[in-house]
């Protein structure tokens, strides 16, 4: 099937998401809450585009909009730009000092927000990716709490979580680097908790927390080389493979 995005003909599979099709064709649509590994958040709404079908013109969220018919898409119409500007304005009122949001603001020619009361220390836009990442790890240490304008991400009762393993998946997926993670003198500070970092048995660099290492061993078995850092593990796997095939 073929759809038209901003005048360009694009090949599309039935059910394929609009954002993916646009990206494959080199068409840029801004996103914050989208992660290829954890798709489907659809909370930041930056990726809105206009879809035209006959006389019907509507605004959809491209990261979760499945293409099922031959439609025409406008990713940057005047209306979309105006609405996107307003979304960015809201984001920058929420997290005024955040570098990623400042970049978006500049891209859309917006000035620093002055009308609204702002909290300069805020960086989180509540996209929910960190919570998803933690859930995918099977840990469930953090969640969103409260509703509406009081919503935030935290550990239960804001205390040090007893299940958190300090893996840092949350910080890794965060699009605005809002999560405070700090590795210092062999100790990781995350979510009001301290974790002992462990060194890679090969290269000797700190690479993860003891809790994370134990968790992975328990989950996937001892023999998966969880004593090595990512880099050395890959290298070891490569060597093993080479040995097998005697390359």
């Amino acid at each position: 099937m073929e759809i038209i995005i901003d005048g360009k003909k694009c090949e599309a599979q039935y059910g394929e998401y609009l954002l993916d099709i646009a990206r494959k064709n080199g068409i840029h649509i801004p996103t914050l809450c989208h992660s290829d590994a954890l798709p489907g958040q659809a909370t930041c709404r930056l990726c809105i585009v206009e879809v035209v079908e006959g006389s019907r013109r509507r605004v959809v969220t491209s990261c979760v909009f499945p293409v099922t018919r031959e439609v025409e898409v406008f990713t940057n119409s005047e209306k979309i730009r105006r609405m996107r500007k307003n979304i960015i304005r809201l984001l920058s009122a929420r997290a005024p000092k955040n570098e990623f949001i400042q970049k978006l603001r500049e891209e859309y020619g917006l000035l620093q927000e002055t009308r609204f009361a702002v909290d300069e220390k805020e960086n989180c836009i509540l996209c929910g990716l960190c919570v998803r990442a933690c859930e995918e790890m099977g840990i469930f240490a953090i969640s969103t709490v409260n509703r509406g304008i009081e919503k935030k991400v935290s550990t239960p009762f804001d205390e040090a979580s007893d299940v958190c393993i300090g893996c840092g998946a949350c910080a890794f997926v965060c699009p605005t680097r809002a999560i405070n993670i700090m590795d210092e003198n062999g100790v990781r500070h995350l979510w009001n908790k301290e974790f002992q970092l462990v060194k890679c048995q090969k290269c000797g660099e700190y690479f993860t927390t003891r809790e994370h290492q134990e968790y992975m061993k328990q989950k996937f078995g001892e023999d998966n080389n969880y004593t090595l850092c990512e880099k050395c593990r890959k290298k070891a796997a490569g060597e093993k493979m080479a040995e097998c095939y005697r390359i």
Binding site: R94, N146, K151
Partner: peptide, 11 residues
């Protein structure tokens, strides 16, 4: 009462 999930509504 907004669930607070998406930016337009919450913010």
């Amino acid at each position: 009462e907004s669930c607070g999930k998406c930016v337009p509504c919450r913010e």
